[in-house]
Design a protein around this nucleic acid. Structure first.
Lengths: 194, 194, 194, 194
DNA sequence: GATGAATGAGCTTTCATTCAT
DNA sequence: CATGAATGAAAGCTCATTCAT
């Protein structure tokens, strides 16, 4: 019943991700992927017809995971959402590195761009919805709830980018202050309610 | 054959940047750069001893320009700063594409990472200073002025990232709302003064 | 395309040797080797990871063969040993050309130098031992049996060198006289026995 | 009166020889030669129209020097001749390395081969003549005086070859025994005179 | 005379891809 | 299913050579 080599495919995708992050985009070769997975080049070809196909499946996998995390929706408070973002943000963040690498590849690959933009969009929406459950309405006039999601996502990504670039990015401190920012803005909302 | 002085280093660096952005990172070959510059491969090698060296000089050039813009400091109001950020943000932004591409290359190249992080740091500081001239003190307790610079830079970069990914990112709208965000926060500062 | 098992490593090594001797050291390119072997450059690279590696295996092969010949030890008399040396000595001697070419390459490659010196040493020893079975003791006082092996080897190599350089080196004549030399020296040994 | 740049040409040839010996045959590039001489590539071209021409002049220079040494003829005894040979023989002998390198290049260059063979021939003859002044006639019947010169030259070259290959070639010891060999053979001649 | 920028052919090497086994 | 030998196109790079200055 159990399908054989379902694992194998998944392992190869994970090896590819590992390769991308650990060896960098220009050493992302099928030979390298094969080596990490402990198989031969031919085997990689057996599972993915081309290199592009493998890259695409890497992207799909990223999206699936991301989607899974969003659906879990176990972040009930702003604090938890920020905590979750923080955990993915550090100087050596596997996830953000991988995301940026495939994003850059996506500049010349419409399929990749589409997939990545679709999860980003979903994140934006999920964040908006989340904020809606916390705030009854936008804390600042002129900023739609959709935009609040975009802003939150943008700031989290922007911080991740800095964390990847800086050797000693003070993740703890910055995320603590990010929490203050949201509390401050949230207060605005309550006051604005008057 | 062998006509002297047909290209300058600067022209080659610009060709390299064009190549990176227009052809993508994996078609960034010295042949392509040479073609764009209208010279032969040998000429590129005469000026930059390796491909890595060329990439490094591309990064240096980005940093120099960025630094130049910061020094000009002709953004006197928040509105102008946001306007300037907006102008660099669009679905096909040359600058941000280039930045991300070299940043991803920098993941495996310490020299590149250092340079890029140094300009980002300068941007953060310039922004903090700018905000300091507008706000007398931090509008929200618990957030240092340094962090406001980091936040502003992060949100701008995060939005640029989305703009690169989405086909129809509403730059105008979002940047208008970003202005509202800053006005709202600024108001907090004044009130907090009481 | 991609027909498996069209060449063996051994064939490639032989092609490389042919290339070195027939085309000379500075036309010893992997393209040339591949052409001689009737394969593509890629194939050569599949078997030997670098050009240096191929050269090293060429040297190893020379040593193995040389060692094989020494072990056979089917030269029972001085006359036979000289005959064997003569046969390898001529204006176009494949063996000596090859040896000198790799020796010169070995000047900047410790691994090659080591291998070549090791077979030369073995030749010296084999010759000493051979002479010992013919002469009961050194024919000339002050010259050890080890040195006789070195001298014999040196003169044979020196003659080979001249044969490679001169257009009309009188191999027959010189080797006949070399025989006289040994007979003369051998007589000394007998007389010295008194 | 003093011709300018007469030196320069000579210096370039010496730089080329240095380059050949120190960097090896496959790093013998005009750029390397220019660097050693402290000039630019263009300058090397100004003096020698092609790389082959430079190599040829290197060979000519070797021959001129060698010929100069032969003409000096300040080796009056066998002991002095052997001493002179010994001095040129060591694990790092500049002269023999250079000779072998250009000899190997000469395998595919008739002009080089001719020049080298001509000096070798002269050496052979000079040695024969020298021996003739010491021995009234050949010490061993059947060996012509010409051949004695060839033998002596061959053994000296063969020993040099071993010295280049072995890390610890016992030059002192071997050359002392070579002297014994000649003394032994010389004695034969006197006895044979009876 | 001398220089250094430019060239282009050709080199070593890498790599996605194919295919017989 | 999986392998590994083979391929060929294209990459990075080197270098003898040319030429305007």
């Amino acid at each position: 019943m159990a399908k054989p080599n379902v694992v194998s495919r998944k392992e190869l995708i994970e090896s590819a991700q590992k390769c991308l992050v650990e060896q960098g985009i220009d050493k992302f070769t099928l030979k390298a992927v094969a080596e990490i997975a402990g198989v031969t080049q031919g085997t990689v070809y057996y599972h993915f017809r081309t290199k592009e196909q493998l890259l695409l499946e890497v992207v799909k996998d990223i999206c699936d995971r991301s989607w899974g995390e969003l659906s879990e929706g176990n972040e009930n408070t702003i604090q938890e959402a920020i905590k979750s973002a923080k955990s993915r943000c550090s100087h050596d963040s596997f996830f953000h590195k991988l995301f940026l690498i495939v994003m850059v590849s996506g500049f010349k690959n419409e399929k990749i761009r589409e997939q990545l933009s679709s999860i980003l969009k979903k994140e934006n929406i999920a964040l908006s919805n989340h904020l809606l459950t916390i705030w009854s309405k936008s804390p600042i006039e002129g900023i739609s709830m959709e935009t609040w999601g975009i802003f939150f996502n943008a700031i989290v990504d922007g911080l991740a980018l800095q964390a990847l670039l800086f050797e000693n990015f003070p993740v703890e401190k910055i995320y603590h202050e990010l929490e203050q920012l949201f509390l401050g803005i949230s207060k605005l909302q309550k006051e604005g309610g008057n």
